[in-house]
Design a binder for these strands. Structure first.
Lengths: 234, 234
DNA sequence: ACTGGCATAGATGTGCACAACATAGTGGCT
DNA sequence: AGCCACTATGTTGTGCACATCTATGCCAGT
């Protein structure tokens, strides 16, 4: 019995805090809490059945990750990412994705192909304008792919930067033609499945890099910055 | 008058917390607080003239960065980095350093050369076994070089990973021949000055990458893991 | 009608008291 | 002498009351 709560070395408090942290982070990264949303400590504390103290700890972690910013007397606000910053983060994601080619865990687990094909169907079955549904599917799409990376540090950086950018990508989604975008994402997933089947890690890194490049272009265009602008480099 | 305290948009509380955070992080990264050291909330709170609450916020940020781990009923312990993890982080640092070649701010500021030569003298003037002095000089060496990177995200990743590894490098320092090591570091600094004078950003990235590679080998050897071991790859 | 100041409500920041927990030392039993 | 249980001490975790700050809306004066 005691084994079930002590399988990891984190204290019970830390585990609870981490669980709440991940939940709120997911809400931010699926645009359930879009940028500029004000989170309220008491409200969240009530929802998660804790007091303000541990909830503040969680929000402070999210603030350290630049996902929210606490403003005295106002609230804890979900941050937006400025286009200049967005380009920088996407650029680093491209670097890391290409570099990841040398650091995948091989062979690729066969179930990852099945999972990607399932997520593909989810994307194609989304109602037009269902940004949150898209956000959920997007998490189910990226995170398992990132988990293919063997180098733990590289994996964490990928995840961190993904969490930093994805809410802006969702924000720009409504400015784009829905069906076309879903088709493009579905194609991306097919392309991933293809290189995974070939057991070609370098290819996988390059494909990821190219998808991030296209994301970068799309999200900046969606924010009104045309390709070719210094803030949307080619 | 009010301008002097409102030049940045962070609240006064946040500024204080950040200052304390940086101070404690520096103490960890210079081995003033070497791994396994127990930090005490009340003690630190007293030193920095705050109460436990904001101090806990700071320690929680450091815990989020994996620099310390809070253990209920015991203390907040400065973490050590396992060799397997250390290799991973060093590897990513090498990737990022080489990639940084394309993202330096040009031209290089002339004062950076002067500063590096000054730090070189500091290294050569250190008493044998003065690990903390070495740690200080090491901060003054790396951080300004990292600041040459224009891409803010890339810069922050470099810094974060540097902060994660440097205490282990200092920990392995006593196992190495002092004079020889100081000479090697002085050579590194000369090499940096050379490529900076040439205004060769790609070269700078490669030199940084090579220095990190040598650090990786040295620190792992210092921890008792011979080059060629899977945990100390060639 | 408009504007300026003020009161108020509600948010985060801080300090403190107590709970939960781990460790070391001590004393008694075998 | 050795071992076990317990107790004392010191640490982090939690909850709460209050301080501080911001934004809003009301109200009086013009």
């Amino acid at each position: 019995m005691e084994g079930s709560r002590q399988i990891d070395d984190r204290s019970a408090a830390r585990q609870r805090a981490d669980a709440i942290y991940e939940e709120i982070r997911n809400r931010i990264c699926t645009n359930r809490y879009p940028p500029e949303t004000a989170l309220h400590e008491v409200e969240l504390a009530t929802e998660f059945s804790v007091s303000r103290t541990p909830m503040r700890r969680v929000l402070s972690m999210l603030e350290h990750d630049d996902l929210v910013t606490a403003r005295h007397g106002v609230g804890t606000i979900v941050t937006a990412v400025e286009p200049e910053r967005l380009v920088e983060v996407y650029t680093v994601r491209m670097i890391l994705a290409q570099a990841a080619g040398d650091y995948f865990r091989l062979p690729f687990p066969p179930e990852s192909i099945q999972r990607l094909l399932e997520v593909r169907e989810v994307f194609l079955g989304l109602d037009e304008g269902d940004v949150i549904g898209f956000g959920d599917a997007n998490l189910q799409y990226y995170l398992p792919v990132i988990d293919l990376i063997e180098n733990g540090c590289l994996r964490e950086m990928h995840r961190t930067l993904f969490y930093q950018t994805t809410r802006m990508w969702l924000l720009s989604l409504p400015t784009m033609p829905w069906a076309e975008t879903m088709a493009a994402v579905a194609d991306e997933l097919e392309e991933l499945v293809r290189v995974i089947k070939l057991e070609d890690p370098i290819g996988l890194g390059l494909v990821m890099r190219n998808h991030i490049f296209m994301s970068r272009r799309r999200v900046l265009a969606g924010l009104g910055i045309a390709p070719g602008d210094p803030r949307n480099p080619v």
